[in-house]
């Protein structure tokens, strides 16, 4: 079975470490915050200018001056700080964020990522995504492995305009956990009940499969 959105978030959460500063993109990445392991401390960075993002507010706590990068109302966790957007991107571009999780339309074997525009459709913009992929060393891309019509999104070469070049090393799809190095995809783990053959079939870029590929584990 392909992973659900929640399971993708859960699997990403297994990559968190105590004391990590983490930037979570819009969509599935945001859900990762719900699965921070018990007893572990992570601090969420929101690129509009907040470090230490808390949960959504109650009705009484809503504050128009306190939002996240998705423009949602949020709260601040204990020990939070706020700063301007140049400072925020100094943290990101300067490599101070330990883990960045974001979505994509396509990735390829050279670590290229396309996530912000589909030519011919309305182009809304890249927001902070280009800065995030250029600045972070540790990035996990979350995405569906293939389109509804079975067209692979893990390619030899991205077909859409790039968000970043040569910057992605880890991809978690609804079918597999994949590492990118030396111009190839490497299959690390598969979703429970999904066969290696299925993953191979839905991966257009060169995929290396060595030994026994373990299933992902969920609690």
């Amino acid at each position: 079975m392909a992973l659900t959105r929640e399971q993708i978030a859960q699997r990403v959460a297994q990559e968190l470490q105590d004391g990590y500063y983490v930037n979570l993109g819009i969509g599935i990445p945001t859900l990762v915050a719900n699965y921070v392991p018990e007893g572990m401390e992570v601090m969420l960075q929101s690129e509009n200018g907040l470090l230490g993002m808390g949960q959504f507010p109650t009705e009484d706590e809503i504050d128009a001056d306190l939002i996240n990068a998705g423009k949602q109302t949020v709260t601040m966790a204990t020990g939070a700080s706020v700063f301007d957007s140049a400072e925020s991107f100094a943290m990101i571009r300067g490599g101070h964020v330990d883990l960045t999780v974001l979505g994509a339309f396509e990735v390829d074997v050279n670590g290229n990522i396309a996530s912000y525009m589909i030519p011919g459709k309305l182009i809304k913009g890249m927001g902070g995504a280009m800065d995030l992929v250029a600045g972070a060393d540790n990035i996990i891309v979350t995405m569906t492995h293939a389109s509804k019509h079975g067209v692979s999104k893990l390619l030899s070469n991205c077909t859409l305009p790039l968000t970043g070049k040569g910057c992605i090393k880890k991809v978690l799809t609804d079918l597999a956990f994949i590492e990118i190095k030396d111009g190839k995809f490497y299959l690390l783990e598969r979703a429970p009940g999904v066969s290696v053959e299925e993953i191979v079939k839905l991966t257009t870029g060169e995929l290396v499969v060595t030994g026994d590929i373990k299933e992902m584990k969920f609690e």
């Binding site: 915050a33 719900n34 949960q55 959504f56 998705g70």
Partner: peptide
Amino acid sequence: EKRIEQRTVRTTKGA
């Protein structure tokens, strides 16, 4: 006015 674009509130738990 301070209009809010994405009014999100906490129901049970989670961020």
